[in-house]
């Protein structure tokens, strides 16, 4: 465990020593702010209409503002998370520090978990900044905190899936740009994979829908913690990290 933390600490340090952490957090906060304002506009509009007796009752802050806001936020993750994961292995291989890690008394698993934990921490910091916006809602409105908490848990788990895939792709190459582009492409595919669900035929439709990372998020955004979704995310992450371990190990044999 101390080894895992040592690696995680090093990862976090190097995120913040380079501009990556600041760009990622800043960009994410900025886009989140834009979404916040835009969706708030719609929400206020809907509120006005219902006040004038045209809508169907007062709009719900959780269901009609926070939920669409966080669902849209997941799009931003597609762009931002590859920036976090692309360097994890590619950079170590390029600079030769992989030799230090692999000849130190560490297991591959400790290295992988440390890197995952480091990336996840930066991602959590990114999400943490957006809580400031949510705090504003508590000042001026009366949202329920439980659905917000489950939505953030969902975001964290979903991001974990993306990070595990990103790390796997980064372990294939020593070029960060290649890793970043590939990761983005794969994220996009995972994002839209349920589009073909309706034409995939009765056999594949449930399969395709099940694979879609974002489908599983919707329940979290509604405020429901369904163990099916938790199991999906956790097993996705585990599988991603397992493949990363295999990739690192096979590189060892090939030299």
């Amino acid at each position: 465990m101390t080894n895992v933390l040592a690696i995680a600490h090093k990862e976090i340090r190097s995120y913040f020593a380079s501009p990556i952490a600041y760009i990622v957090i800043g960009l994410f906060a900025l886009l989140f702010g834009y979404f916040f304002v835009a969706i708030l506009g719609w929400f206020v509009d809907a509120g006005m209409q219902s006040a004038m007796g045209m809508g169907q009752g007062a709009p719900n802050l959780n269901q009609q503002f926070i939920r669409p806001l966080l669902l849209n936020t997941t799009v931003v993750l597609l762009f931002v998370l590859p920036m976090i994961t692309m360097r994890t292995y590619a950079e170590e291989k390029r600079s030769g520090t992989m030799e230090l890690l692999l000849t130190s008394p560490l297991t591959d698993l400790q290295i992988i978990l440390g890197k995952f934990l480091g990336a996840l921490t930066l991602y959590a910091a990114m999400l943490g900044v957006t809580l400031l916006y949510i705090a504003v809602l508590f000042v001026y409105g009366n949202p329920e905190w439980r659905p917000i908490a489950t939505a953030y848990l969902g975001l964290l788990l979903m991001g974990g899936c993306f990070i595990s895939v990103g790390m796997l792709i980064s372990s294939f190459t020593r070029n960060q740009i290649v890793a970043g582009m590939l990761t983005f492409g794969v994220f996009l595919l995972l994002w839209v994979i349920d589009w073909i669900g309706s034409f995939a035929g009765p056999t594949f439709e449930p399969v395709v829908n099940y694979l879609s990372i974002t489908q599983h998020f919707d329940d979290f955004a509604k405020g429901v913690i369904d163990t099916r979704h938790v199991i999906y995310y956790v097993s996705f992450i585990t599988f991603g990290l397992f493949l990363t371990a295999k990739s690192v190990d096979s590189e060892r044999w090939r030299g």
Partner: peptide
């Protein structure tokens, strides 16, 4: 590995760490 020290052909340094930070990290792992 606990009993082996290794200097590869290119020293495995992290460019954004100071020397002391780097050695502290190595000491930990």
């Amino acid at each position: 590995k606990r009993r082996t020290g290794y200097l590869p052909e290119t020293p495995p340094l992290y460019p954004d760490m100071t020397v002391r930070e780097y050695l502290t990290f190595v000491a930990r792992i």
